[in-house]
Amino acid sequence: MQPNPKWRAWRRFARNRLSVLGMVLILLVIFSAVFAPFIAPYPEHAGVVVNFADANKPPSAQYWLGTDSVGRDVLSRIIFGFRNSLILGLAVVSLAISVGTIVGITAVYLGGKVEIVLMRITDVFLAIPSLVLAMAILGIARPSQMLAMIAMAVAWWPWHARLVYGIVRSLKHEGFVTAAEVVGASRIRVMFGELLPNCAPNLLTKASLDMGFVILLGASLSFLGMGAPPPTPDLGTMVSEGSQYLPDIWWLSVTAGLAIFIVVLGFNLVADGLRDLFDIVG
């Protein structure tokens, strides 16, 4: 066995075969999302294409996963849908982590009234289910991709605030914090130079899990018609379209649903592997 720490970390991660499977799934999804125009059999079907001659065709050699009600290739739209899901997930998770981390660290480190106010605000946002909160925000405005991202980030940051708050609170009185304070490190320096790096393993694991959850939340929103407006290829919207034609045109809902499942499963499995790697309990 090689002594290289990177290799050792990989061994720990790969001890669970499912984590490796998750990694493979995510890499495949990322690959097809990045190279969507080259992989998709009919890249132009990601946009406004009407081809009634081929509408509602079941899976065949020509259209592997069939076509939708206006004759667009489902496989191509799923591949482009991966692209949107990943962008959405990445944007929302980074926004939510940034805000949540700043709130969590600030609350603990400044303490006193700041802590009470910040954590109470967090509690308020946690009292409304994420889906309902995001819907309510989207409800007062015209839905757009941008607004959907913001609404989901608003619904998602409190979870990170709570996570970081818990970790930092247990670290606040550790030796390295006091040491940094004694040598005259500024508050900002202690908060983001000393405390933040200690949250990194938990945050990374949570980020992977959240990519899955946020993509799921986004799919739920678009399923309810509050996601990206057509003709954007969106997995949730595709499931919703297909659900109107059940049971005859089953392939649209089933394949788009399985596509969401693959992405979310991948991120969940990788999160499990990271949890083993960093030895996180829970």
Binding site: S253, G257, F261
Partner: peptide, 23 residues
């Protein structure tokens, strides 16, 4: 539990509906 958590609610709902109600 992996299947339950990774597959969206509405996809589960539609699958169950398709198999148990329609088919």
């Amino acid at each position: 539990s992996l299947l339950a958590v990774a597959m969206p609610n509405f996809v589960w709902a539609l699958f169950l509906m398709l198999i148990l109600s329609f088919w």
